[in-house]
Design a protein around this nucleic acid. Structure first.
Lengths: 360, 360
DNA sequence: ACGCTCCATGTGACCGTTCACATCGCGAGA
DNA sequence: TCTCGCGATGTGAACGGTCACATGGAGCGT
């Protein structure tokens, strides 16, 4: 909702430092360095470095003097120089698809906030199509930045393959539960969430339920589908094959229209809210009503879901918390801190008005 | 719609290079450097550097040899080293609010893609609240990265103030038209878009139209409001004071409910699609219908808008194009290339089913 | 009073690039 | 044939931090 025109203002790049008492001026156009600070403060550059890194053995008054000079000169540490010598970029990469959707966007924002708080930088690579080339491009872009950790919000299956091919050797995290590798698992339990949604439908009396799944190379899509299948099986409800979608409302609309030509179901569990919205549109277009004729459950609880018509029953995930934990997990590996956040995030069923008793 | 658990795999950080013919092995754990390449290729490090920078006077066969060795060693240039010596980070910063919304998220994705294509990196700082402190934090974060240009997708008014205070001296661009400073203006003409929407309503016979505006420290919110006001004035329709919102569907819902207690209007022009959705919800909750009782126009054309109930008439903006041009403009400043993209992006009225004749 | 430890600080090298400048041929013009 | 110019390449010094190590006192046990 943001937009148009563009104002640019061009300004000189150098920082004008006005030192009141004429001590030695810092060099020409460059920003002041550690040595400039040292000179003005009357200490060695190393002492300045120690102040910067909170080294314990510095006399408080020395420290304060250095700090004062830093402020006076508007000193900012040079990230490149530090990265060069330590060979640590302190950068976390995010490989993301459909970053314009609410879920990924929220997670990205949370990751960035958490990383920033921990003194890390974040670099995002968006891939438009999820073919191997785009993925490889995105990963190459991140690699060139020397990322120390990677978060994958994209079709994981292919990403992992590409990762191996490019021999990118950083710890990585993805935002969903696989079930395998529980040691390294941080979960909003997608499966549990999908089961809640499915159970809700079954409890309301539905027996013919379709599942509109997400792309199957997204592990969370797979997990939600598995949850659906598990619950259907556990309750002994006959299952039809899930329909594989692409997360968009458009797809939901077209799939819904298709499905309604036969109309052998009373409910649909969509793998995200957008697809659920599309289905509702198709239902109305067919002259039917939600939930009278068809009941619908979504997944994610995007902020708009409460205002859909009818307000959508869905499964809420805390994307922000997810992003935060993700970073905690990565940093645990990176900094050998013990990540506290391995517990499971429990999703929540938000009951609104899109589910009713079955029509037949 | 992405989510849950998290898989981490830890891998060694060093790159194992297997050089078939035992030439001198590169140093311990570090990645191969320009000198490693030089040694293996039998040239000087400077020659390698020249190959890297496409220097004209290098013999083709020398160049090829170096290229081969680079491939063999899996050499990747070290960004930090380069940034250090050139004091150019090749990084563009984005300061963004509400990055989870479709518009900003789309622009960000486009900016990142365009920047990547131009060999630049992108760093995003999200601000959660738009108070001065958050803004200052975000800007400080970006500054510490040595950004060379800045894109602002946030309440610009405050940002500009803070920018001045922090004495951040980089070229910047914002994603909207101000009207002032036409020389540096890249416009999706918000004003024109808002006028189109308003005119559409007036042409359909509406005379009592409310405007649900965005936060007024967003310049595009202001521009859309101005467009609304201008058109109303031009057509001699009496105007009521716009209502200042916050871009969310929730706000639209509550504002709509409030407005409907009086119901002295036949149409609402909302400053974005989310607020329009909220209003439609309120209208239905009041037992009324869109567009029979109230007509509604939105702004942005988010992908879901076509599937709202009723499908929303709105103004489409090409966020992606916007992001692209934004980068072109910045890079024009940065690299002294002539930015070709100063023309105006014309928004487009998408007529769907949320506007009808006035109820009274 | 001696030596040892530890605190506070300084010195110089090094990280991987680019930059400014030097060098070495070789062909062309006088 | 001598020199000048230029194309192709090499040499060494930055850039702004951190690291490993050195140094000079103060405090303290014996």
């Amino acid at each position: 909702m943001v937009s148009p025109a563009c104002v640019t203002v061009n300004m000189p790049r150098s920082i004008e430092v006005t030192v009141p008492e004429p001590s030695q001026e810092p060099p020409k156009g460059r920003a002041p360095s550690i040595r400039d600070v040292a000179r003005v403060a009357g200490v060695s550059h190393q002492t300045v470095s120690r102040v910067l890194n909170h080294h314990p053995s510095i006399r408080p008054e020395t420290k304060q003097r250095v700090l004062d000079v830093m402020a006076e000169l508007q000193y900012t540490p040079n990230r490149a120089a530090r990265a060069l010598v330590t060979s640590r970029s302190r950068t976390i990469g995010i490989l993301s698809a459909s970053s314009t959707h609410y879920g990924p966007a929220s997670s990205i924002a949370a990751i960035e906030a958490a990383a920033r708080a921990a003194g890390y930088w974040v670099s995002t690579a968006n891939i438009e199509s999820s073919d191997a080339v785009s993925i490889a491009d995105g990963l190459a872009y991140l690699r060139a930045q020397g990322i120390e950790g990677l978060v994958v919000i994209a079709p994981q299956v292919r990403v992992f393959d590409t990762l191996a091919q490019l021999s990118i050797d950083v710890p990585y995290v993805t935002l969903q539960s696989t079930g395998r590798d529980p040691e390294h698992t941080l979960s909003v339990d997608q499966i549990a969430g999908a089961r809640m949604a499915t159970r809700h439908l079954i409890e309301r009396g539905h027996r013919s339920i379709y599942h509109l799944a997400g792309p199957q190379d997204w592990i969370e899509a797979e997990a939600r589908m598995r949850g659906f299948l598990d619950e259907m099986g556990a309750q002994d409800v006959p299952t039809t094959a899930p329909i594989l979608g692409d997360w968009t409302a458009d797809f939901g609309f077209h799939a819904g229209r298709e499905l309604l030509t036969v109309r052998d179901f009373t409910a649909i569990f969509a793998s995200n809210d957008q697809m659920a919205l599309g289905v509702m549109h198709a239902v109305r277009d067919a002259g039917l009503e939600v939930p009278r004729d068809v009941s619908i459950v979504g997944f994610d609880d995007i902020p708009e879901a409460a205002h859909f018509w009818p307000p959508l029953t869905t499964v809420r995930q805390d994307f922000a918390e997810l992003g935060r934990r993700c970073v905690a997990l990565l940093l645990g590996d990176l900094d050998d801190a013990a990540p506290e956040y391995r517990g499971t995030i429990v999703p929540e069923l938000i009951v609104r008005d899109s589910v009713g008793a079955p029509a037949f």
